[in-house]
Design a protein around this nucleic acid. Structure first.
Lengths: 104, 104
DNA sequence: CTTGACGATTAGCACCACTAAGTATACGGT
DNA sequence: ACCGTATACTTAGTGGTGCTAATCGTCAAG
């Protein structure tokens, strides 16, 4: 998937995968790859800064976890994150609908 | 419509409205506004540079027309533009499908 | 003659995803 | 032991692209 296409939608994607259950950055990337059938193959330089951004906005929160000697920072949605997610879903729907209207 | 959402899709939108018939920049913006029911209200600083970019890529071509004393640069799709459009439509479909898969 | 719609241009800014490199642990194969 | 690969995080720098805002100009309506 070309980079520019997902601009402005990465946060929505990340929030969406975190809604099901908390996850660390690497797992977020994996879930996105899997759930999109490989279409969203986001670089680390995309996913981690996105998580920092979301944490800065208070939409996710994190804590360190050590599993088998590996440090993981596990993120989960905050209440504000849940609300933001539902708003962004509606925003996406409006966008996709408008795109469809122009393209049809 | 927030700016970031359409990043990477403006070219597709512009090519799409030009496919029906040639148009000048101002008219392209109007058509987009109308066909999207006001969702896509693109600034001039977005639409004109997009047209220049597309012309630079050989996807559209333009010629000056004077109508009632007003200069207009009328753009129309080239053959390469038609092909690019159909490719980008498929690309959009893949993107929208993947988004839906992640969000659902 | 002032206002607003039409129509185009462009310099500068800001955001955001990517590249690329670095750091570090675990584990399987040789 | 050594090496490659997967896992896991960080971050400086770059580039694309849409926006802001200003400028220049014509025309019709008030």
């Amino acid at each position: 998937m070309r980079a520019e296409a997902i601009k402005g939608h990465v946060d929505l994607l990340v929030l969406s995968v975190l809604q099901r259950s908390p996850a660390h950055g690497y797992a977020v990337a994996e879930r996105l790859r899997k759930r999109s059938s490989g279409v969203f193959d986001l670089a680390e330089g995309t996913i981690y800064p996105a998580l920092y951004r979301l944490e800065g906005q208070g939409l996710v929160e994190s804590r360190w976890r050590t599993v088998g000697g590996r440090r993981r920072r596990v993120y989960r949605l905050t209440t504000a994150g849940e609300q933001a997610l539902s708003g962004r879903r509606r925003h996406w729907d409006a966008f996709a609908t408008a795109m469809q209207a122009v393209l049809s």
